[in-house]
């Protein structure tokens, strides 16, 4: 699946301050290609996460359009777009994002439960083993470390074998060894055909990138 952004912008209104309107993302054309790991770097506040949210169907652009396999994401009703995101997109958000009342396994299988789909438990087990959290299958989020919670979020995003993977600072809480393992894993997902976009500050990511992009003051440039 290929994702394309045509002339997308995102403008925000600041509730206070002298200049109350600003562009977090200036007019941008962008394509996320299958089988490629795209790394997007840039300073904090440069608009990386805003662009990722727009591309993953979570934030409507102020102008322009985003299509996945020719389908205009934001022309779809919310119900259809949500289902589409569940089936085709894997999003690894920033921070700790586990559901408090569910076990690690239940958290990872949640994308199936949302629409009552049959859970792929074998895939969940395989991901847990790969991310070294298999021993924590029945643990609750409150019992896990920051790094373990990040790996749960990664497993959850990948459990449905999505065609498009969006990772926002996926290695934020991980040590060097686990960081390398996550990048290797995301690279492997790209090799298997997924289109992967990673927003990160980690310089090590460059070593895994097929395409390197930089965001600066809302403008996207290729390195």
């Amino acid at each position: 699946m290929e994702l394309t952004a045509e002339k997308v912008t995102r403008e925000f209104v600041r509730p206070s301050g002298k200049t109350n309107r600003f562009f977090a993302v200036k007019e941008t054309d962008f394509a996320l290609q299958s089988g490629r790991l795209t790394v997007l770097m840039g300073r904090s506040g440069s608009g990386k996460t805003t662009l990722l949210n727009m591309l993953s169907g979570l934030l409507m652009p102020s102008s322009g359009r985003i299509t996945a396999d020719g389908k205009d994401l934001y022309a779809m009703p919310d119900k259809e777009l949500s289902r589409f995101r569940c089936e085709h997109f894997g999003v690894i958000p920033q921070g700790q994002t586990a559901i408090h009342s569910l076990t690690v396994t239940e958290n990872i299988l949640l994308p199936f439960a949302l629409y009552g789909d049959a859970p792929d438990e074998a895939r969940a087990r395989q991901l847990m083993e790969r991310l070294d959290i298999a021993d924590l299958a029945n643990a609750r989020p409150a019992e896990l470390s920051g790094g373990e919670l990040r790996r749960v979020a990664i497993a959850r995003a990948l459990v449905r074998k999505p065609s498009l993977i969006f990772a926002d600072e996926p290695t934020g809480d991980l040590d060097d060894e686990n960081t390398a393992e996550v990048f290797r894993f995301l690279k492997e997902c790209a090799s298997e055909g997924a289109a992967v976009l990673v927003v990160t500050h980690e310089n090590d990511a460059k070593g895994y990138a097929d395409i390197m992009l930089k965001m600066s003051a809302g403008e996207l440039t290729q390195e």
């Binding site: 993953s56 979570l58 919310d78 119900k79 777009l81 949500s82 289902r83 589409f84 995101r85 569940c86 089936e87 997109f89 999003v91 958000p93 921070g95 994002t97 586990a98 559901i99 408090h100 949640l110 994308p111 949302l114 629409y115 959850r156």
Partner: peptide, 18 residues
């Protein structure tokens, strides 16, 4: 208290109605 959990469900594909 749980708005982050709801945001995560939305990221996973839950519609606003869900």
């Amino acid at each position: 208290e749980r708005k982050k959990e709801f945001a995560v469900l939305r990221v996973m594909g839950a519609s606003r109605a869900k």
